[in-house]
Amino acid sequence: MRKVRAVLVSAVMVLGVSLTLGAAPAHAERLAGVFKDQSECERIGTQGISQGWWNDYSCEWEGRYRYYFLYA
């Protein structure tokens, strides 16, 4: 089950990056992570700000994938 989940998460991340790069305007944020829980997405987003990795972030629910996407 873990292997299936790992493959699924990897596939969702690659698909998300592909969609983001293909349809994103020049000023768009980059995909920084994919999470099952909103709380985990928010935690990593906040950690990224405190570590200086990015200045702002947003966690967006993608219902068709059933994951939260962290854009920074």
Rank of each mutant, 00 (worst) to 15 (best):
V34G: 15
W53R: 15
A11Y: 04
T46D: 15
K36H: 11
A24F: 01
H27P: 01
V17N: 07
R64L: 06
A11E: 05
R30S: 13
R43K: 13
P25Y: 05
E29K: 15
T46H: 11
E60Q: 15
E42Y: 04
A11C: 03
K36Q: 13
K3E: 14
R5I: 06
L70I: 01
A32L: 03
F35A: 11
R64C: 02
V7G: 04
A28T: 02
L19S: 10
V14T: 12
Q51T: 06
M13T: 13
S58G: 13
G52F: 05
Q47R: 15
L21T: 08
S18Q: 08
A72Q: 07
W61R: 12
Y65H: 14
L70V: 00
T20L: 05
K3V: 03
T20V: 06
L8C: 06
Y71N: 02
E29D: 12
Y67Q: 13
A6L: 08
L19F: 03
P25E: 00
Y71I: 01
H27M: 01
E40H: 10
G45R: 04
T20K: 13
I49H: 03
R66C: 04
V12F: 13
G33T: 00
E62A: 10
G33M: 02
L19N: 10
Y67L: 04
G48L: 00
P25H: 09
T46R: 12
A26V: 04
R30H: 11
E60Y: 07
Y67W: 09
W61M: 03
D56Q: 14
D56V: 06
Y68G: 02
F69L: 09
A28L: 00
W53I: 04
E62R: 07
R66M: 02
K36S: 14
S50I: 00
D56M: 06
D56E: 14
F69H: 03
V14M: 10
G33K: 01
V17H: 10
F35L: 05
Y65R: 12
I44M: 12
R66L: 05
I44Y: 09
K36R: 15
A26H: 10
A23E: 01
W53L: 14
Q47H: 05
G63P: 09
A32G: 15
A32E: 06
E40Y: 02
M1F: 11
A72M: 01
R5N: 07
V17K: 12
Y67T: 01
E40G: 12
C41D: 06
S10E: 10
S50L: 05
G22S: 10
Y57L: 04
V4Q: 15
G33R: 04
Q38G: 05
V17A: 11
D37P: 00
E40D: 14
S50K: 11
C41W: 05
A32Q: 06
E40M: 03
H27I: 00
V7H: 15
V7M: 11
S10H: 11
V14E: 12
P25Q: 03
H27G: 11
Y71S: 01
D37V: 01
V4W: 10
W54T: 10
L70R: 07
E42C: 04
A28H: 09
A28C: 09
A28E: 02
E40V: 07
R2A: 09
W54S: 09
W53F: 12
Q47E: 13
R5L: 07
E40A: 15
A23L: 02
V14D: 11
G52D: 08
G22L: 09
D37A: 13
E40W: 02
S39A: 12
